[in-house]
Design a protein around this nucleic acid. Structure first.
Length: 537
DNA sequence: TCTCCTAACACTTTTGAACAGT
DNA sequence: AACTGTTCAAAAGTGTTAGGAG
């Protein structure tokens, strides 16, 4: 079902993307990022979350493109923003690191649990970015968009069940993705009371808001910019992976998904065949407990001791028992939680030359429209300064594609990467909302950036969050791996991005407890990337 | 009756502090 | 003094399940 089949299975409801570009996305031996051509070339699409990501607002392609230009005001009643930002060079690529795992889930029909307090995604969105200019700085953004306007339900039994349309989707908890979608906004205005829209729009929980029984897809955006306060954007591109589509649920609807989650998620080991929390174990434990509580305790201790000796992570137990939780076609990749030790840089990196982005960047514009502006008021970039204004924003009829009312951004998370700190925390009142980390560019090395976007799922909260460094960033050196012919670089720099917004909403929520941003230096990786992409750095 | 949601539960992994050794 | 490794308790992340709401 994975691959183009997913579209036939989900039918026309999978309207956000068509499978036409899938072939190039899966070159043999290399999981190439699924890149949206329509987001890189001028075209009538308006589902981008960032104005400059909007192809309609793109100028000439390439880093030497025209200046980013936005109107002096971001308000309703004004024409749509007409920013012109070039797309990133074609060698900028995003690869989904755990794509095999996603494929397995997608083959069944990925489900993500929603809880009131929030639930982590599994699998997580782990992407690797390559082809970036080490002297430039970029913003990495993640949002989750609704694939369609459909609420789903399960028809049939747990096994062999099939998702089908149940009703029209819940109204988006915040404004539609792009302001120019008048029809979409009219719909939203119709579905969502103004006061409610205001409430949800202004909610600042750092949570991604999702509805249960709806279908979503994460998207990744890279924006070249000096910092979040920059008024210059040197280019931007959007990426997405069809296999990361998922349906939100409050309880798993498909037993196969449950078994796959249990077998691949380390936190669910207790529910495996050899786990103490497995149904068989639990049932027998309950029976024994009912018969003889004291004996049950002793028996439990003995069992637990034996389990400990053999190791809770002993994957051979399954084989010994001759039982596999699921007859999987593909070998399960090693599940990897997003929690890694935080590894600060070993030594202060040499100050790189001032970001090259300065040279290739367009002239500064005279209005404070920037990533900072987006951070401070993302709704404005979604076309709203307030819900009351939403219906005023207009766009010429015919410019909006049919599917323009889908793909509404349901959340955005952002990381920052680049060669030097973009702001001085002491001087900037908003410094805590974004940081970057240092790279150590060298002609001998190639740098890849890996992200674990560890979003959780829920609904009722803010639609937007950023991430900041963990407190240990300034701490001492880490493991250093020397490379012949050049200086030693940290083997890995793992930076934790804790959530900095508190959940104060009583509705469902999607907390964003922290994505991890890791930087990897590897000559092997560099070679691999350089082989396929000679123009890197 | 059915669908969907909630909260408690038992289990596991992860984290971070405390400590000892080099 | 700085670094490394170990231990352990607390916190956080899992799916399960009974019960409730509509």
């Amino acid at each position: 079902m994975y691959h183009p089949d997913v579209f036939s299975h989900y039918g026309p409801s999978y309207g956000i993307r068509t499978p036409c570009t899938m072939a190039s996305a899966y070159a043999p031996g290399h999981h190439e990022a699924f890149r949206y051509p329509d987001l890189e070339h001028t075209g009538p699409r308006f589902d981008s979350i960032f104005p400059s990501l909007d192809p309609h607002q793109r100028g000439l392609p390439g880093p030497q493109g025209p200046a980013l230009s936005l109107p002096p005001q971001l308000s309703y009643g004004q024409p749509p923003p007409q920013c012109q930002a070039p797309r990133l060079p074609g060698n900028v690529k995003i690869t989904l690191e755990n794509i095999e795992l996603w494929k397995q889930f997608n083959a069944i029909g990925t489900e993500m649990i929603l809880t009131k307090a929030g639930r982590r995604m599994f699998p997580q969105c782990k992407v690797r970015v390559s082809g970036l200019d080490p002297h430039a700085r970029y913003m990495m953004l993640l949002d989750i968009v609704a694939v369609d306007n459909t609420r789903y339900k399960v028809a049939g039994e747990a096994l062999g069940s099939k998702w089908c349309r149940a009703a029209a989707a819940q109204p988006s908890l915040h404004p539609p993705g792009i302001p120019s979608q008048r029809r979409a906004m009219d719909e939203a205005d119709h579905l969502l009371p103004q006061d409610q829209a205001d409430k949800y729009t202004l909610d600042q929980l750092g949570h991604i808001i999702l509805h249960s029984m709806h279908k979503y897809q994460p998207r990744f955006h890279i924006v070249q910019a000096n910092d979040v306060f920059s008024r210059r954007w040197g280019g931007c591109s959007s990426f997405s992976f069809p296999e990361t589509t998922f349906i939100t649920v409050t309880a798993y609807q498909n037993e196969e998904i449950t078994q796959l989650k249990i077998s691949t998620n380390p936190f669910a080991k207790g529910f495996r065949e050899d786990g103490m929390n497995h149904k068989r174990e639990r049932d027998s434990r309950m029976k024994r407990k009912a018969k003889s509580p004291r004996r049950e305790t002793e028996s439990l201790q003995s069992e637990y001791k034996q389990m400990r000796l053999s190791g809770p992570c002993d994957s051979t137990l399954d084989e010994e028992m001759g039982v596999r939780p699921l007859d999987l076609v593909m070998q399960l990749p090693s599940p990897d939680c997003s929690f890694h030790p935080i590894s600060p840089p070993a030594t202060p990196s040499p100050t790189p030359p001032f970001p090259r982005v300065q040279e290739s960047q367009p002239q500064e514009i005279g209005v404070p429209v920037s990533a900072e502006a987006y951070l401070q008021h993302p709704a404005a970039f979604h076309g709203m300064q307030s819900a009351k204004e939403s219906s005023v924003f207009s766009r010429p009829a015919g410019d909006v594609p049919q599917e323009s009312n889908i793909g509404k951004s349901e959340g955005l998370n952002m990381a920052y990467l680049g060669p030097e700190d973009p702001v001085e925390p002491e001087t900037s009142p908003s410094a805590e909302i974004s940081h970057d980390f240092r790279t150590q560019p060298s002609t001998n090395y190639s740098t890849c950036y890996s992200f674990d976007f560890n979003s959780l799922v829920g609904h009722g909260g803010a639609d937007f969050s950023t991430m900041s460094y963990g407190p240990r960033l300034e701490e001492g050196p880490l493991a250093v791996r020397g490379v012949a012919g050049g200086p030693a670089f940290p083997a890995s720099n793992d930076l934790r991005f804790p959530a900095f917004m508190q959940n104060s909403c009583s509705a469902y929520a999607l907390p964003f407890p922290g994505a991890q941003l890791s930087r990897t230096y590897s000559t092997q990786t560099a070679t691999a990337y350089l082989d396929t992409d000679k123009s890197i750095f």
